[in-house]
C-alpha cells in the first residue's frame, strides 16, 4: 500500500457517481414527501367514493361536472389567448419605445403581481359591480346600470387582470432578446411591417408564448380567489372542488375532480408544447 499524504490519495475522494447520488437525495425526499405521497393519496381517495373507480368517470359523465369542466377549460383558454395578444402588443411597444412615463407605466402594469385573487375579484367588483364605475357611467349615459362583475365576463376580466402582468414581463424579456438584424434583413427583402411580424418576430417569440401561455393557462385553470369572489352564478372547477369538499364533505368527488383538473391542465400544456415544438421543426 502506498498512500500519499492526505489529499493526494485518490481514496480520500468520493467516487463521482456516489457524489451525484448524494446530491439527488434532497430532490428525492422532496419529490416523495410533497408530490408522490400526497398525490397517490389523492388518487386513491378519488376512487374511494360510493362509486369506486367510476367516481373518476363521473366527472366526465355527470352533466353538472362536465359543464363545469368545459367552462373552466374554455375560460382558461380564452384568458390565455387574449392575455398573449394584449401582452405581446403592449410588451413589444413598451420594450421598443422610449417615452416619458414609460417606467411608471411598466410599474403600474406589473403592480398587481402581488395581489391575491380575492383582491383582483374585489377590483372587478369596484369596476363592474352593482356600485361599480361602469354601472355608474352607463346609468348616467343610457339610464341603465351595466353590471357584469358576477357574469362569466367579469370572471374573464379578473383572470386577464391576474395573468397579464405575469405574461407581459416574459414577453418584454423575449422582445429584448430579438435580433433586430433579422427584422432589418426581412425589410431589405421587401417585407412589409406586417410580414416582418408574421415571418420573423412571432416565430422568434414562439418559445416565450409557450412558456408564458402555459403559466397563464395553468393559473387560470386553478384560480380560486378570483372565482371565489366573483363566481356566484357560474361554476368553475376550483369552486366546484371547494363546494364538494367543504360544503358537501364529498371527499371522493373533490379528489377525483382535483386529479382531473391536474391531468387536463397538464395534457393541454403538453399538447401546446409539442405543437409549438413541431411547428418550429416544420418551419425550420
Amino acid at each position: 500500500m502506498q498512500y500519499g499524504a492526505p489529499g493526494q490519495g485518490r481514496h480520500f475522494f468520493m467516487p463521482h457517481r456516489t457524489f451525484v447520488w448524494l446530491c439527488l437525495l434532497p430532490l428525492a425526499v422532496l419529490t416523495a414527501a410533497f408530490f408522490l405521497l400526497p398525490m397517490a393519496r389523492l388518487v386513491v381517495t378519488g376512487a374511494e367514493g360510493p362509486q369506486g373507480l367510476a367516481g373518476y368517470l363521473a366527472i366526465l359523465v355527470e352533466p353538472r361536472y362536465r359543464a363545469t369542466l368545459i367552462n373552466t377549460v374554455l375560460l382558461s383558454a380564452a384568458t390565455t389567448i387574449v392575455t398573449l395578444i394584449i401582452a405581446t402588443v403592449a410588451g413589444m411597444f413598451l420594450q421598443r419605445h422610449r417615452f416619458p412615463g414609460r417606467a411608471v407605466l411598466i410599474a403600474m402594469l406589473t403592480f398587481p403581481l402581488a395581489f391575491p385573487g380575492v383582491v383582483v375579484g374585489f377590483l372587478i367588483i369596484l369596476l363592474a359591480g352593482r356600485q361599480g364605475l361602469i354601472g355608474d357611467l352607463s346609468n348616467r349615459l343610457f339610464g341603465e346600470k351595466l353590471v357584469f362583475a358576477y357574469s362569466i365576463f367579469g370572471l374573464f376580466l379578473g383572470y386577464l387582470y391576474f395573468s397579464i402582468p405575469r405574461v407581459i414581463l416574459t414577453i418584454m424579456a423575449a422582445v429584448q432578446k430579438l435580433d433586430v438584424g433579422l427584422e432589418e434583413a426581412a425589410r431589405s427583402l421587401g417585407a412589409s411591417p406586417w410580414a416582418v411580424q408574421r415571418d420573423v418576430v412571432l416565430p422568434a417569440l414562439g418559445p416565450a408564448f409557450v412558456a408564458s401561455g402555459a403559466i397563464a393557462f395553468a393559473t387560470a385553470m386553478g384560480a380560486f380567489g378570483t372565482a371565489f369572489t366573483l363566481a356566484t352564478n357560474i361554476d368553475v372547477l376550483p369552486m366546484l372542488i371547494y363546494t364538494e369538499f367543504t360544503l358537501a364533505a364529498n371527499f371522493a368527488t373533490s379528489a377525483a375532480l382535483s386529479v382531473g383538473l391536474g391531468i387536463i391542465a397538464w395534457a393541454i400544456l403538453a399538447l401546446a408544447r409539442s405543437f409549438s415544438g413541431s411547428a418550429v421543426a416544420a418551419a425550420g
Partner: peptide, 10 residues
C-alpha cells in the same frame, strides 16, 4: 449583414 441575419425558422 455582418452577422448574416439568416432566418432561423426557415
Amino acid at each position: 449583414f455582418q452577422s448574416y441575419a439568416l432566418f432561423p425558422n426557415m
